[in-house]
Design a protein around this nucleic acid. Sequence first.
DNA 1: CGCATAACTGTGTTCGAGCACAATTTATGA
DNA 2: TCATAAATTGTGCTCGAACACAGTTATGCG
Lengths: 345, 345
Amino acid sequence: MKKYTIKDIAELAGVSKGTIDRVIHNRGNVAKDVEDKVKQLLSDIDYQPNLIARNLKNNRIYQIGALLPDPKKDAYWEVCSDGIQQALSEFSAFDIRMNTFLFDPTDTKSFVAQHKKLLDSAPDIILMVPLFYKEAKTVLEQYKSLNIEVCTFNNQIDASSASFIGQDLYQSGRVAAKLMHSIIDNGDMAIIHIDEKYKNAVHMQEKEKGFKSYFEDLNGFKDAILKCKIRYTETEDKLRDFLKDHPNLTGIFVTNSKAFHVARLLESENKNHIKLVGYDLLAENVNYLKDGVIDFLIHQNPRQQAYLGLKFLIEHLVFEKEIPGKHLLPIDIINSENVKPFLRA
Amino acid sequence: MKKYTIKDIAELAGVSKGTIDRVIHNRGNVAKDVEDKVKQLLSDIDYQPNLIARNLKNNRIYQIGALLPDPKKDAYWEVCSDGIQQALSEFSAFDIRMNTFLFDPTDTKSFVAQHKKLLDSAPDIILMVPLFYKEAKTVLEQYKSLNIEVCTFNNQIDASSASFIGQDLYQSGRVAAKLMHSIIDNGDMAIIHIDEKYKNAVHMQEKEKGFKSYFEDLNGFKDAILKCKIRYTETEDKLRDFLKDHPNLTGIFVTNSKAFHVARLLESENKNHIKLVGYDLLAENVNYLKDGVIDFLIHQNPRQQAYLGLKFLIEHLVFEKEIPGKHLLPIDIINSENVKPFLRA
DNA sequence: CGCATAACTGTGTTCGAGCACAATTTATGA
DNA sequence: TCATAAATTGTGCTCGAACACAGTTATGCG
């Protein structure tokens, strides 16, 4: 129960604290028999260094670099800064400096350019959203060769050693399917990808797979699952045509945060009977959720993703904790009645 | 940007660090003009003491007392200890000792008895589940007069100054109603209270109110909302009778963690068409959720409640942070597809 | 054996805040 | 005026880990 200090151990071992220190940090210059004895003692009493004292001595300024999408270009990212602020305030006892570089989420060049600036700022460790697969992979390799640890969130870049925080997208497709299944009786469904064009579409494909797999697992399911890919610029016309072509649609699943486009159309064309499930708590989505045009939203919780990522990084720097290789957040189901606390949390 | 130390300020003010320290802690024995000057300086540069150094010096052992329901008597409480462990591990840098006293959640006497033991352990601060309204009120007043701060969770005791962490129960009733409304077409509904007898029933009443209020807000809603109170010991018979008496029931809302009792009956009587919404991720509930007998569960997240409560207390002791007066957790909607990560998180 | 060098071990300072106590200045009264 | 008390200010040690450097013992070799 008692907490041992280096001094205590020195007395127990009959040597000076300098020797204990050399053993703990494997700094050599210790007689073999003494080293063995001290190591035994350390493990016997399960010595845990006082991290407070260690940090006081180290007294370092930690530089954390962040490479994040610009919230001005896509409101989805707005809440990330809240999560970052929360983590910083929890660790305000330590001197942690953040250098944040924002890139345009529609522009791979901007990503690379901001990455270069980030590198110049000589960060100890990095938090990033690896939005573009190819570019991110190169960038991550570069950090690896420099021995700078990275925590990524939102997108998982496979075959990278970087740690990842996010959701199981396949499973979130299944969640959407289950929700859809519980609110529609029968009739055709559609999966709509409103492609922001810039994102490599792995995201949406995973969700589609999960959605389909749920219905394939049901026996005796007969209705059709249609699919529709729409470019961001031509959204409205294409959507209107699609609805006209498929008059007996009963449910629509939008695989990203753009469900409000569909909601707008459903409302203006008085097709409220079509159930709608989408992603993310953008203000426009939330409004349609409250109005009953959108039935469910799945919350990807970018705020929590950023918070956790930064927290892991700080705990690694300060307490030498391991950064988890992969951390999956729960998939939050949101309807009009439980949305409120999620907007701030 | 630079972090000022007491020594820096002493130099700036042209006095010694002892004087700065006296001003900061209002320990008197400082000439009026010097005091004013130093105070001005402190606020000018927005001095923040180095909490690492402060904690090293203080080097206190913090004693936290906990008064919690025994998980052996009700599985709902099992996950609390996970939350407590997580908080302790996050603050393992500090010497925090927990004395946990478990009471029988069916027995007010046990609550009072364990409270007395807790008092004898001379805690600096207390975490508790104030399960029994009357007794908890007395107990909380006692702590208040002793100037021991308390954080409560799960139950809110109004008119107490203790901080509270939990959910908005009225709103969670509304969430249940919205879910029910989205999965049933029409027909009668029932609110079933399976009273554990020991809890003052405020909990379930709030949920009932919320549930009803949702349907009252709809215009043109005509179906009946029945109500059924069942004592824990006579559950099965009473339930069977109730179902027989109301053959055109389409939805059942169970206001606590006992939905599995209803699920068991629905399954054995082949009444799977009746939709079922309940609370809490007990193993039995989760099984019926996966089997499709229970449609939705609302997660009250006792693990997170305990975690946050303890975290607030520790941050108060260690960093002198304010304990939030009231912290409401989001209301998590769980179906068979998103349940998994909630079981561990 | 003597002496250089290597191998090992002990001492003392630092980080910043907090506090006891010593030291200094100012006020008071005979 | 001077002793003494009161008010004010300064100094130095502590907390525990980390590390530089000084000190000590052992080993090798001519």
